[in-house]
């Protein structure tokens, strides 16, 4: 068929549309600069649930329902549900799939899940294996903190390069009915290990993977940075974004003002005490499916490159002294 161009990129012959999206943000994210572009903002981080894990699940379901409602779709009309999250064995997604009742494929791409789901969903649709795909992801600050780091009430000083896990969930409905921006190319990344061992410095760990996928996408497609109105990485944070820019310029790719990072955009770094910015699956999902989706629909941006970035370590692997392997997937969205 020849849909694959270059080494890692797929050009989509029949590009599906992002028909609708659903976003639910945590209370702290609701204080950030993008608050007006989220569908719902929680007033309570527990969302009236007895645990943070249940809270994360409830907002993931909510985001999916919002996406379906916005397109006037019922869950029975959707062929596949692709979702993933950060909690062990991706319980937020697995349990959400019970209540949605859509055939489910669980994903794990850490914080790259939004881009991974969009990319995979697009391939499945372009291959003709489904008519509509719902893809979603979530993260919860307190649930992630207690799994990866310390208890919520533990009093420790955060590092200047540390990032803040975003509480929220984002869902997108892909298909061929209605209107919406289209996913026209997908680049799946390779897992990279550049020797980072500090699980608190995720931006630095993930930057080389992001740079590699960006270079690969440009080489495979022949497009360049000026082809895009906006190029956003998932959750590199301030430190990672600078490192990624540096890595790219060493390879002869200069990125201008149209290069940013969802983790940097979601918070007001000068007012909100998040150090290097946001992280977590919900960072790129909220920013892409919230403000960026709306800007695409209003045709303020025409060509967007999203590079979802994920650190694929586990608490066990870094405790045993292993490096942090990272990945990045790129998705090109056009109107």
């Amino acid at each position: 068929m020849g849909k694959k161009t270059g080494k890692q990129t797929y050009q989509i012959a029949n590009p599906p549309m992002i028909i609708s999206t659903g976003t639910v943000a945590g209370p702290f994210e609701g204080l950030g600069p993008l608050a007006q572009d989220f569908d719902e903002i929680l007033t309570d981080a527990r969302n009236e649930q007895s645990s943070f894990e249940k809270a994360e699940r409830s907002i993931l379901i909510k985001a999916c329902r919002l996406a379906l409602d916005h397109a006037s779709f019922s869950s029975t009309e959707v062929d596949l549900f692709l979702a993933g999250d950060l909690l062990n064995q991706t319980i937020s997604s697995n349990f959400s799939a019970i209540s949605l009742g859509i055939p489910f494929i669980g994903l794990y791409g850490a914080c790259s899940t939004a881009a991974l789901g969009l990319g995979l969903g697009t391939l499945i649709l372009d291959g003709g294996f489904a008519g509509s795909v719902l893809t979603a992801t979530s993260s919860h600050n307190s649930a992630a903190e207690r799994q990866y780091r310390y208890p919520t009430e533990y009093g420790g000083q955060r590092r200047s390069y540390q990032q803040w896990t975003v509480t929220g969930a984002g869902a997108a409905l892909l298909g061929y009915t209605g209107e919406g921006p289209r996913v026209t190319a997908v680049t799946f990344g390779k897992v990279m290990d550049l020797g980072s061992t500090d699980p608190l410095n995720m931006g630095a760990a993930m930057a080389p993977a992001a740079a590699d996928t960006i270079v690969r996408h440009f080489q495979d497609t022949g497009w360049d940075p000026n082809s895009f109105d906006l190029i956003v990485t998932g959750d590199l944070g301030k430190v990672g974004l600078d490192l990624c820019r540096q890595e790219l310029s060493e390879q002869g790719i200069t990125l201008g003002d149209n290069f940013n990072d969802c983790g940097v955009m979601i918070y007001d770094l000068s007012k909100q005490d998040v150090h290097a910015g946001g992280s977590g699956c919900a960072a790129s999902a909220l920013v892409t499916y919230g403000p960026l989706y709306r800007r695409l629909k209003r045709k303020e941006i025409h060509r967007l490159l999203l590079i979802g970035t994920g650190a694929l370590h586990s608490p066990t692997s870094y405790m045993q002294g292993e490096n942090i392997p990272c990945i990045a997937h790129a998705v090109r969205i056009e109107v």
């Binding site: 590092r159 200047s160 390069y161 290990d193 550049l194 020797g195 980072s196 061992t197 410095n201 630095a204 930057a207 080389p208 430190v239 600078d242 490192l243 540096q246 290097a276 002294g321 490096n323």
Partner: peptide, 24 residues
């Protein structure tokens, strides 16, 4: 920790990453 052998590319990147860390 820290004694693990790094490849030249890894070592080079870690030096850059160290420099990019904002100082406490």
């Amino acid at each position: 920790m820290g004694k693990k052998k790094l490849t030249p590319a890894q070592r080079k990147y870690q030096e850059k990453a160290k420099k990019a860390e904002p100082k406490p």
